[in-house]
Structure formats: structure tokens, C-alpha cells
Design a protein around this nucleic acid. Structure first.
Lengths: 195, 195
DNA sequence: TGTACATCAGTGAACGCGCGTTCACTGATGTAC
DNA sequence: TGTACATCAGTGAACGCGCGTTCACTGATGTAC
């Protein structure tokens, strides 16, 4: 597994990781070729030895962001499940945690970009569809037993929407919105067991 | 009420109406000074006789978009209420109607822009907060009697999120997501009366 | 072990284009007498 | 009613800047013998 990465592969990975953060912090438009390369410790001229176009980077950045966030979510959920939370409760608390109000660059790529997704070129939009589907399936796999699996779409929409509205409101209003959303989701899908 | 508008005021209104559609179709970045002026039948040079800056136009465009969409929503709801729908059912059907999957330029400005709102300058972000609050209050005023008014935030988040995910998915997947969201909202908040 | 050459990753200047903003000017409308 | 002038809305050229993309070149690493 300890695959040796060539110098070029290391650079490539570094660029994608930087872009995966930038795309969630600043949106599609906030990802500039020169800025990304600079933050990765390189100069912009070398970019096209790594990617066919800026769009190609955006696609890789979305994949990397999704992968990274999924890993963080899973870890945070595992910590909560150890403490007795159900998988669903752990998901709701991890996804709608107050920390995501400010630190968007490590957060959910769908929540960070959803209203811009339909305005991108074909390849980016197609990757966006995959990221949405992936998130919905992750939510589905975390629903409590006995809950209709078709609820996954609605739960996902609620969490994504709540995060966005809370971020826009910010401050107390934003935190309150998260509180209410967590309570509503947990009450609806496991009313007897708050954990 | 039939206020006579001066020639300049008429132009101003036309520009804002064009921008209110453009901002929902193409996002903040999709609103270019030259394009908007052209679509309003003017040339770009005259822009700064109407607005202090592009940002000032964005603020007015958001207000106009919100006002216009609110009017359309209310009309659509009234038509459904005449047919026996409850106010809440009418809201859910009007807001999550399939037609909003494609025609975004007349749709909800919050759904069209939410993931970009936090990345705008202060004045635009501030107006965005107002638009979110306004939408939440509209939803609150449409909740069925007996439902906790604090559910307004969650319902709004669900509707906004669902519209965005459905738009990204598009086609059958998008329409299915809307169907499931409508059913879930109606079942949760008025389980006995499907209307 | 050392030398000559090829390959490779990255550099930095330059190009072209779009876009927000400015400004001197024009043509139409309104006003004074 | 007509003439002279002022005001006003809009025009279009130009400026400056950012940004995606290209390309000739450099310096380091790897390879052949």
C-alpha cells in the first residue's frame, strides 16, 4: 500500500488538496489557477503539465473534497457512536455541527457549492451530480432501522439546506437554525431515543 | 397609486427587473454590467447614473427577485387554496413545483444563490440575510395551526435544499427528490389531511 | 567511478479576453422670456 | 408662438486589472557507456 509517489505525483496531489479546500472556501470562481499553484508552492506556468484545463482541476478537487469530508464525517460519527449515539444521531450531530458554520473549507462540498452546480460546464456538473448522489447514499446507509430508505433524499436536502441558511445568517440566528434542525431530524426519525 | 415614472425611473426599473432574472439564472457572477444594460435596451456607459456600483445593483436585484417571487408564490398558493388545499399544502406544492427545476430565473432567490451568499461583500451578504429571514417568516406564517412555529426554519431549509439538489440532479432523479420532499413535509405537518 | 546526453518538472514572460469603471460628448426634453 | 439656453439621460471609447492559457527556456534528475 505504501505506494512510492514520484515527485510529479506528489505535486499533483498537493495541488488537488489545496484546490479541494479552496473550492469549498471560495466557490468555483474562487479557484484561480495562479493562486492554487502558489499555495501549493509552485508557479502557475506548470499547471498544464498536471491538468488539461482549469475545469479538470475542479473535477478532481470536488472528488478530493468529497473523499476527505467523508473520512472526517465517518471519524466524527465513530467517536459519537462509541459514546452511545446511534449511527443516525451521530450523522446529524457531525454534519450539523456548529463548527461547520465558519470552517467551510473542510466541510461538505455539496453544501458549499450546490447553488452553483447547475451553472458549471458539463464535466463539472456531471461530477456534481455524482457528489450529490454519493452524499444521499451515505445518508441512506445511516438511517435508523425501520425508517423508509426513501427518506434519505429529504434528510439530505434538510441538512444541506440548513447548513447553507445557517451560514448565511451567521451568529446566533445561524446556530439556532442548526439546533432546531438537529432536533427536528432526531425527533422525526428516532423519537423515543434522543441518542 | 398610478405614480407617473420619469423616463429615468422607467429605465432604472427595467434594469433592476432584468438583473433580478439574471441573478437567479446565472448567479452573482453571471450578472455583468454590460450584459444587463444591453438586455434592458441601453448601453453600459449609462450604468453609473443609476447605481453607485455593481454591488448596489445586486442588492436591488435581490430585493426585486424576492418581491416578485413572493407575489408569484402567493398567487399560486391562492389558486390552490381555492381548490381546497390548506395554506401549508399550497406552499409546499407551489415552492416545490417541478416547473422550478428548469425555470430558475423566476424562482426563489435564496434557493438560487444560497451557497454563494457568504462569499459576497458586506452589503450583498447583509441583504442576503434579510432575504433568508423574509423567506423563513413567510414559511412560518403558512404553517398549519398547532404546528410549533419554530419548525419554520427546518421547513425552509428542507425546501431550499431540496430545490437545489433536485436542480443539480435534474431529470427523473430531480423530480423524484421533489416528490419525496413534498410527501415528507405534508405527512409530517398534516398527516390526516393530504390536502 | 566518471562523463555526456536525454528526460522531466517547473519557471516566468507574454497573449488575449472579459469586465467594472470613468469620462468627454451628444441629442432630446424642458424652461425662461 | 418662437427663440435661446440649461438640464438630463444615455452613448461609446478608453483604462486598468485579473485570469486562463501558451511557450521557450532552465536546472535538476536519471541513464548509457
Amino acid at each position: 500500500m505504501s505506494t512510492q509517489l514520484s515527485r510529479k505525483e506528489q505535486s499533483h496531489e498537493r495541488i488537488v488538496e489545496v484546490a479541494a479546500r479552496a473550492i469549498r472556501r471560495a466557490g468555483y470562481r474562487g479557484v484561480g489557477v495562479a493562486d492554487i499553484m502558489k499555495e501549493a508552492g509552485l508557479t502557475h506556468g506548470g499547471f498544464y503539465a498536471h491538468f488539461a484545463s482549469r475545469e479538470a482541476l475542479l473535477v478532481e478537487a470536488m472528488q478530493e473534497a468529497s473523499r476527505g469530508n467523508q473520512a472526517e464525517l465517518s471519524e466524527a460519527m465513530a467517536r459519537r457512536m462509541v459514546k452511545g449515539h446511534s449511527r443516525f444521531s451521530a450523522l446529524v450531530w457531525a454534519y450539523l455541527h456548529d463548527s461547520h458554520l465558519i470552517r467551510t473549507e473542510n466541510g461538505c462540498v455539496v453544501a458549499a457549492l450546490s447553488s452553483e452546480m447547475t451553472r458549471q460546464g458539463d464535466v463539472v456538473h456531471q461530477e456534481a451530480r455524482r457528489r450529490v448522489t454519493y452524499l444521499v447514499e451515505f445518508v441512506r446507509s445511516s438511517l435508523p432501522q425501520g425508517v423508509d430508505p426513501e427518506q434519505a433524499e429529504v434528510v439530505t436536502a434538510t441538512m444541506v439546506g440548513a447548513l447553507q441558511l445557517a451560514r448565511t445568517l451567521g451568529g446566533t440566528g445561524g446556530r439556532n437554525l442548526l439546533v432546531q434542525t438537529r432536533e427536528a431530524l432526531l425527533q422525526k426519525h428516532q423519537p423515543d431515543n434522543p441518542h
